[in-house]
Each structure stands twice: as structure tokens, then as C-alpha cells.
């Protein structure tokens, strides 16, 4: 049991031989895997058993509160007196609330501008940091520092940097003859500023996932590619990218989900202003639940958000068949 070596060694050799025959990895995609075996009873039981420890807690601690809040979304509840049945009132009112549309627009802006940048830069960084240069560990740590820093402390620092009056950023721009930018002050610039901070804070996160994924790409694939005369760009697109696509897929899905729930950075940096330019959906949820005494309404916002994110996730799952290779 404690000797994994022998089996694995054989297996790796077999696998390597196989892959070596097909330098361009698309043959490793998942389709083969699915049809490989028929469903059998033993495997079904094993599947449920492997799932069980997670599933039990999952049902209690995740699904139960979710169902609770779903029910609440059909109620009026001020958190103090008993909830009363509201039918679809909350949902109906929600769609008439201009703040909802504004927050949704802001959140989508944050997600659809921020997520691609996060992924591209994170991947770029991981590729750089995977290479054969000195001081890698140092750089990796440096890029990971913002991820571990507390949002509150770094937001304060960014406020300082963004300060329209005495801020360091405008000072530096001044050296290049660029006019001061009203970073957090103007409704037009506030969201880009927030995205910048989120990017700065989150890029190291994606970097780590991609680094781990890059480790999984067998070296000899590149060797055969080089023999075939592929340049680095081709190597990236034909080997690296398909090989790490499951991780890219993971990063895309979770980044979209997380970005649609952006809360911390906007709360500390701008409080949602100016003129609601950075007010996000989850800020709205929090506000309606705990400032406005409207838990039912807040729950309905959460479930509309759920629906939206679910649609995007399903779309991604659908399109993933075209570019994710297992």
C-alpha cells in the first residue's frame, strides 16, 4: 500500500509512449474517457461512497441555508417579526428598481472587463514564471503577496494612491505630462479603478493555478514539437493551451462566479459611489438585508443573481466542449 512506485512507474511509461505518438494533444480529450466503460454497479457504489463524506456536510451546511433563503425570497421579512408570504412581490418590485439595473450593469462591467484581464495576465505571468530563470521563487512570492494581504489594508493604501489631490499615481502620471485622472471621484473612472485594484489583488491567485497546471504538461511533448519545427507560439497554442485547458476552464468559471459576487473591494474603496457607479449586486443584497430591513427582497436579488450566473456557467459548460481537452 505504501509502495506506489512500481505501478506508477510502469503506468507513466505506458502513458508517455502513448502521448509521444501524438505530439498534439487533442487525442487526450475527454470523449474517449466517457465511452470507455459501461456503468456498473460496483462503480456506482464506489462513486457514492467517495462522495458521501462531502455530500453529507454539503447537504446540511450548503443546501439547507440555500433552500431557506430561496423560501425567504417569497416573503416579506424585517428580520425581527415573523416573515409574511409575499408571493412574487419581491421579484416584481426588483425589476422596477433602477438601482437593481444599475448594480447589475456595474457588476457585469466588473466581471466582463476584469475576468479576461485576470485570466490573460495570470496565465502570462505563470508562463513567465515557469521558465528557466533565476529568482523564480522570489518572483512567485512577490506576485502572490497581494493575494494574502488584507483587503482593508490594501484598499486604504490604494485610496491613498488614487487620491485626486495628493495621490502618488497622479503625481507619477504628471512626470509623463499626463493630466491628473479623477480615479475614484468621477463616475466614469471609478469602476476602472476598482477593476485595477481587483486585478492587482487577484492576478497572483490565477498565476498559482496556472503554475500547477503547467507542471502537468509532460516535457517531451515540447521536445517532439520542436523536432516537428514548431516555434514557441505554436508550441503554446498546440501544446500548452490544450493541456492546461481544464485549469483555464476552472479559472474562467470560478472567476465569473466570484466577480459577480464582488463586494469587499468596492465596499472598502468606494462604498458603491460615486453616484452608484460602483454599486454591485452583492452590496445591494447586503444593504437591503441588513440596512433596509428587507431580507425577503434581498433574497430575491440573490436568486436573480443566481439565475444570471447559472446561465453564464451553463453557456461556458456548453462551449467548453470545443476548447477544453481532458
Amino acid at each position: 500500500m505504501t509502495e506506489p512506485g512500481s505501478n506508477v512507474k510502469v503506468a507513466v511509461t505506458i502513458a508517455n509512449k502513448r502521448i509521444a505518438r501524438y505530439p498534439f494533444v487533442s487525442t487526450l480529450s475527454g470523449g474517449e474517457r466517457v465511452s470507455r466503460r459501461k456503468i456498473n454497479r460496483k462503480e456506482t457504489i464506489a462513486g457514492y461512497l467517495f462522495l458521501a463524506p462531502n455530500m453529507v456536510g454539503f447537504l446540511v451546511f450548503m443546501v439547507f441555508p440555500l433552500v431557506g433563503s430561496l423560501l425567504l425570497s417569497f416573503s416579506h421579512w424585517n428580520l425581527i417579526q415573523s416573515p409574511t408570504f409575499a408571493g412574487l412581490d419581491n421579484y416584481r418590485q426588483l425589476f422596477e428598481n433602477p438601482l437593481f439595473w444599475q448594480s447589475l450593469k456595474n457588476t457585469a462591467y466588473f466581471a466582463f472587463v476584469g475576468v479576461p484581464l485576470q485570466i490573460i495576465l495570470g496565465l502570462f505571468l505563470a508562463v513567465l514564471l515557469y521558465s528557466n530563470i533565476k529568482g523564480l521563487e522570489f518572483f512567485r512570492t512577490v506576485y502572490f503577496l497581494p493575494v494574502v494581504s488584507s483587503t482593508v489594508a490594501v484598499s486604504l493604501m490604494w485610496q491613498w494612491l488614487f487620491d485626486s489631490h495628493t495621490g502618488l499615481l497622479n503625481h507619477v502620471l504628471g512626470w509623463f505630462g499626463i493630466n491628473p485622472v479623477p480615479w475614484l471621484v468621477s463616475p466614469k473612472w471609478a469602476m476602472p479603478s476598482v477593476i485595477l485594484v481587483a486585478l492587482w489583488k487577484g492576478i497572483g491567485y490565477n498565476m498559482v493555478i496556472f503554475l500547477a497546471a503547467l507542471k502537468g504538461v509532460p516535457e517531451h511533448l515540447y521536445e517532439s514539437a520542436r523536432i516537428d519545427g514548431a516555434n514557441r507560439w505554436q508550441q503554446f497554442w498546440n501544446i500548452t493551451f490544450p493541456m492546461i485547458s481544464p485549469s483555464t476552464f476552472f479559472v474562467t468559471i470560478t472567476s465569473i462566479i466570484n466577480s459577480f459576487q464582488v463586494f469587499d473591494v468596492t465596499t472598502v474603496l468606494t462604498g458603491g459611489g460615486p453616484a452608484n457607479a460602483t454599486h454591485t449586486i452583492v452590496m445591494m443584497i447586503y444593504q437591503y438585508a441588513f440596512d433596509f430591513f428587507r431580507m425577503g427582497y434581498a433574497s430575491s436579488i440573490a436568486y436573480v443573481l443566481f439565475g444570471i450566473v447559472l446561465i453564464f456557467t451553463l453557456l461556458q459548460l456548453y462551449f467548453s466542449k470545443k476548447w477544453v481537452h481532458y
Partner: peptide, 30 residues
């Protein structure tokens, strides 16, 4: 492993990530 309901359950897992914790706070407290 392949077993009936696998993909549905997996989607269920993903789905729970889409609800912000702020809104499940009170039910979780209870």
C-alpha cells in the same frame, strides 16, 4: 467514476457557489 446523477450532482455543487454567503447568513445562523 461513473454513476447515475453524477453530472447533475456536480452541477448542484457548482450552483451552490453562485449564491452569495451574505444571503445564507441568517439561515446558517439558525
Amino acid at each position: 467514476l461513473e454513476f447515475p446523477g453524477r453530472d447533475f450532482l456536480f452541477m448542484g455543487y457548482l450552483a451552490t457557489m453562485m449564491i452569495p454567503r451574505q444571503i445564507t447568513l441568517v439561515p446558517t445562523f439558525v
